[in-house]
């Protein structure tokens, strides 16, 4: 039984906005990214280190800077409290599993410190698939 997507979004926003590692260097962490989990897609909009909005029902023309796309199984592995090898990050899963990084990867690289920290918050929030 997966988590309701709106409950997940509220939890992920709360975790991000309360995270000291992100917030201590949150200024200018401003970008928009998609988590494509197959059956479920969300768009997270960041502004100065805070979640401004999470779009839980993206329409075809809704835009974002970059996307992370993988199977629901991979996303569920990302969300384990102690993920198995190769599911423990975006580089490992894209080199060795089915994660694909798409879109404007320069924006990802410009925000990589905070994004990698925020990505690992999935281990606390779970995923809505």
């Amino acid at each position: 039984m997966s988590i309701d997507v709106n409950s997940w979004a509220a939890k992920y926003k709360q975790l991000t906005n309360a995270d000291e590692t992100i917030q201590c260097m949150g200024k200018y962490y401003t970008c928009t990214f998609m988590f494509d989990m197959g059956a479920r897609k969300v768009i997270v909009e960041m502004h100065d280190g805070k979640v401004k909005a999470i779009n839980t029902d993206p329409a075809p023309m809704d835009s974002y800077d970059f996307a992370l796309r993988a199977s629901p199984e991979t996303w569920r592995e990302f969300a384990q409290p102690m993920p198995k090898p190769m599911y423990h990050g975006i580089f490992s899963a894209s080199f060795q599993r089915d994660l694909r990084l798409e879109g404007n990867l320069l924006v990802l690289m410009q925000n990589l410190r905070n994004f990698t920290v925020q990505f690992e918050l999935l281990r606390q929030s779970g995923v809505p698939v």
């Binding site: 102690m82 990050g89 580089f91 690289m109 410009q110 990589l112 410190r113």
Partner: peptide, 18 residues
């Protein structure tokens, strides 16, 4: 166009075990 220090450091972050 990116902060190379952070790209290198966070780019190797998940080379480490959680």
């Amino acid at each position: 166009h990116a902060n190379a220090a952070q790209v290198c450091a966070s780019g190797v972050w998940d080379l480490m075990a959680p």
